[in-house]
Amino acid sequence: MQSVILKTATHLMVGLMLVFAVYVLLRGHHEPGGGFSAALLAGTAFALFAITEGADQVRRAIRIRPAAMAMTGLAMAVVSGLPALFTGRPFLTGIWRHLNGFSVGTPLLFDMGVFLAVLGAILSILLALEEN
């Protein structure tokens, strides 16, 4: 990939896809989308990035280890279920706070956990394969 234009285009596209992924993640609770789609989208973006730029670049860009990312996601999903335990309700009971018309609750944290877990998983395979 010598061409600067192509490189820039890829960067731009990957960036766009990532932004879109975050959008898909956040709107997931109300519109089509959610953690899975967002993670797959971001994964595709990184795959594109890895194929054009190589695995090193991806590693540098995401900073944390994919495996740790996946585990963090899993941890978030588990943690989102814990507050209920402390209030004496069953595990994974949603706890919501309503602020100015926005509702924030543990299921959203759960969804983010899903996002991170799936993205981390895809990334770790992708990078390992690329580096092999």
Binding site: A68, L74, V78, G88, F91
Partner: peptide, 22 residues
Amino acid sequence: MTNLLVFPILLPLVVAVLFILA
């Protein structure tokens, strides 16, 4: 209300997560 039921599942899961994160 008996969250005790979830612990046989949750506990090993948490230990597994700890293994990596810690």
